[in-house]
């Protein structure tokens, strides 16, 4: 497959993931819409192009790791895992229900393929640094991808981990920050301004890439580049649109932690289909 064909295919997958997210949230009557939709393109690229993982052997020692730090966007994680073959699609509708393996925030021992438990923000970056350090110690060649968010960087623990990874020049570590400029109570700039974020990471010793996180070509190129850098950890600052693909959710912090109603879900799917068709033209 040429990279153009791959990108076309990944776009289709991200469209499918977004539809799954809407269905899961609507059925669960709770969950986080905006971040899940905004990160669907990056999840599609990781699960269906870059991650060396095998759903039949989720504990393979040399597998690439995807560490989700902002656990509340797990609807898109579960949708990706299911599509990849970790569990049947029907199980997606058990999300947030009693006796489900699909916890409201991910739990590693509930579901094979979930690498870490997350939800309390900031914990995944430290965890991922530990995973990447293991590769260094054992000479495994796997890559560690950590997905985190801009709001999450309010947590001091994030910076403890970022400082350590930079100081130790840990290779094979790629942190993707979902910079969607919203958090639960409002705009990131107003709650606690993070900018200039690129310079912060640079001064902590990281290699910085910045992309449009809803542009599959840019995602593809940035991740391809990130895995070639071995002198230091890499951060990809992905500028995303929260709620991407659903017109009435885009840019709205009100959709950070809320699911659509049945009627809103219908409109959301229509909006996703319209936008996907328009993009294909």
């Amino acid at each position: 497959m040429t990279s153009v064909e791959e990108i076309t295919k990944l776009k289709e997958i991200s469209f499918e993931l977004r539809k799954s997210v809407i269905k899961m949230l609507t059925h669960a009557k709770s969950g986080h819409a905006a971040g899940s939709l905004g990160m669907a393109d990056i999840f599609a690229a990781l699960y269906f192009k870059f991650l060396n993982i095998n759903p039949k052997n989720p504990y393979e020692l040399n597998r690439d790791r995807l560490i989700l730090s902002n656990g509340h966007i797990c609807p898109v994680l579960y949708a990706s895992m299911s599509k990849k073959g970790f569990f049947p699609e029907e199980e997606l509708l058990t999300f947030r229900q009693i006796d489900s393996r699909l916890q409201g925030h991910p739990h590693n021992t509930s579901l094979p393929g979930v690498e870490n438990s997350s939800g309390p923000l900031g914990q995944g970056i430290s965890f991922g640094v530990g995973v990447a350090m293991n590769a260094q110690i054992t000479n495994y060649k796997y890559k560690t991808f950590i997905l985190g968010s801009d709001g999450e960087l309010n947590e001091g623990q994030s910076w403890e981990a970022i400082m350590l990874a930079g100081a130790r020049k840990i290779p094979g570590l790629i942190l993707i920050i979902d910079k969607n400029n919203i958090q639960i109570s409002g705009k990131t700039q107003e709650i606690l301004d993070l900018d200039p974020l690129n310079e912060k990471f640079e001064s902590f010793g990281w290699y910085v890439l910045e992309i449009d996180g809803n542009n599959m070509e840019e995602i593809y190129l940035a991740i391809s580049k990130s895995v070639t850098i071995i002198s230091k950890p890499v951060v990809i600052i992905a500028n995303t649109i929260p709620g991407f693909g659903v017109d009435f959710m885009e840019y709205k912090f009100e959709w950070h932690g809320k699911p659509p109603s049945e009627s809103e879900a219908k409109l959301a799917i229509e909006s996703l289909e319209k936008n996907y068709k328009n993009e294909k033209k």
Partner: peptide
């Protein structure tokens, strides 16, 4: 950085 230490240890243990 004790918070980071706990997390890094958990990551290492997961491997």
């Amino acid at each position: 950085a004790e918070q980071n230490m706990a997390g890094v240890a958990a990551g290492l243990a997961s491997c």
